[in-house]
Design a protein around this nucleic acid. Sequence first.
DNA 1: GCCAACGTTGGC
DNA 2: GCCAACGTTGGC
Length: 139
Amino acid sequence: MAHWLFKSEPDVFSWEMLLAKGKTGEEWSGIRNYQARNNMRAMKLGDKGFFYYSNQGKAIVGIVEVCKLAHRDSTSHVDSWDCVDIRAASGLPKPVSLETIKTDRRLADMVLVKNSRLSVQPVTSEEWEIVCALGGVKA
DNA sequence: GCCAACGTTGGC
DNA sequence: GCCAACGTTGGC
């Protein structure tokens, strides 16, 4: 199973809002970046991802699950933009801050550190396990 | 609020 | 196809 990271600004779309969407989840629309889109196209049902707060919060606060494969982004007027749907899987007992990630040498190669602007990122299984451990959940 | 990093656009 | 100009993102 592949692992991912989804960024969201908490005042735009928060973890609580995703939780409120329940099992149906949320269409992760509005992504207008080819790399991010290609990452979503590569996702499989059941793939897990981190839910990261950018700008405000700057921490991984939860774990999400891909619940619908990539499809046409309903908010796009052109057919070049696709997105998946995601739903909340579990919250992190201990949110893992960007500061923590940056100071952990094992996480120095995370895309979040190397290319912080990419809004949908791949996460290696090693990174996944380390962050899960830091966050107080089983990988 | 600033600015570095990155992606996109458009003129040539 | 190159690259300067511009816009956006996101950490600080």
